[in-house]
């Protein structure tokens, strides 16, 4: 473990390299059975973070974590359980996906000014055993909402795993 390669910030100039068509659509937007998971990324002053990137990993609706390729091309591929969303000028990220059978989305956060990636989870509303503060809310139109606060009074709970 002592030889682990350290992380560095994603910096400001990643969009042309890491964003790709359909990156945030694990299933096509508006598809039957789909749900939108979205939210805003904030800094410690409550300001939006317009140069963050969020990735999610999840099971399908039946609880199976897919091991299929095709996320970078999307069209013609099945559900791969992985997506990427670069925040816009308002700090907004979004995914079109399905509600996972295993009750959380695994989340990685990157941003300019953030020197290493952060891990967290977003649980479905009502999930049993959910970590306090990491539960999405259901909006009136059915979308799932979860805001990420890098710092401040509402700071998101971030994780350390045993071998990281």
């Amino acid at each position: 473990m002592t030889e682990t390669t350290p992380g560095q910030t994603i910096g400001p100039f990643f969009h042309h390299a890491l964003a790709f068509p359909g990156d945030s659509e694990l299933v096509p937007f508006g598809a039957a059975g789909s749900v939108v998971l979205h939210g805003y990324v904030h800094d410690g002053a409550g300001e939006p973070v317009p140069d963050a990137m969020i990735e999610i990993r999840q099971s399908d609706a039946s609880g199976v974590v897919p091991r299929a390729g095709g996320s970078l091309r999307r069209r013609g591929a099945g559900f791969t359980g992985w997506g990427r969303s670069c925040t816009d000028g308002a700090g907004h990220y979004w995914f079109s996906t399905v509600e996972p059978g295993l009750p959380f989305f695994a989340v990685t956060v990157f941003a300019r000014g953030l020197l290493d990636r952060l891990f967290t989870r977003i649980y479905l509303p009502g999930a049993e055993g959910a970590v306090d503060g990491l539960v999405a809310s259901r909006e009136a139109d059915g979308r799932l909402r979860f805001d990420i606060h890098l710092q401040g009074p509402s700071e998101t709970v971030f994780f350390k795993f045993p071998r990281t």
Partner: peptide, 28 residues
């Protein structure tokens, strides 16, 4: 300055989707 968490990270064991990286292949 305003983009680093100030609380200690919570120690958790990985579960479910956290145990499997996404898969990419020649179609990607």
């Amino acid at each position: 300055t305003l983009r680093h968490p100030t609380k200690e990270p919570r120690h958790v064991d990985p579960e479910g989707a956290e145990l499997l990286a996404p898969v990419f292949g020649n179609s990607d």
